[in-house]
Amino acid sequence: MNRTALIVGVLVITPLLIFLALSFRSDPRDIESPLIGKTAPLFTLQDLDGNVYSLEELRGQPVVINFWATWCQPCIVEHPVLVAASRRYEGRVTFLGVIYNDKPELIRKFVRQMGAWGPSLIDEDVSVAIAYGVYGAPETFFIDATGTIVDKATGAVSPQYLVNLLEGMLSS
């Protein structure tokens, strides 16, 4: 085979293969959220009992927003972690759950059985999930007292991660 053709072929195909390999390996949920370091999108939602929550009114202390659903296995895994954290940081951190593509009656039943770590807000038109760039459940956003998103976790959060992050947010 012509030596020049081989070299040109390798030079053209190798970068393409590397590019494709890297792209296929990356999970879109692992892409860092462009919202980190920016003001959290404001929203107003109702919980299962009709109580209205406005994010703007919660400024002044850290807020944890967790997008979850009963069909999501990692959400069930992290549920006790969030219950424990909400008790530990009661009065210092607000925990909000946003229902992601699930039926309120299923959430109500689940919470009755497993306990609640915060209000479960109904995002009927999925607009809040879209504004937060949610790819799936669970995704957790950490918002500081000024309303800035400081971190985002995809998948079930571990107790250690949660405590480290919240302690950092409370001490700053």
């Binding site: 999108p41 404001l42 929203f43 109702q46 009927e124 038109d125 504004a131």
Partner: peptide, 11 residues
């Protein structure tokens, strides 16, 4: 009635 949802237009 309080408008529910996100304040997208502000962005």
């Amino acid at each position: 009635p309080q408008a529910l949802g996100v304040e997208g237009q502000a962005l």
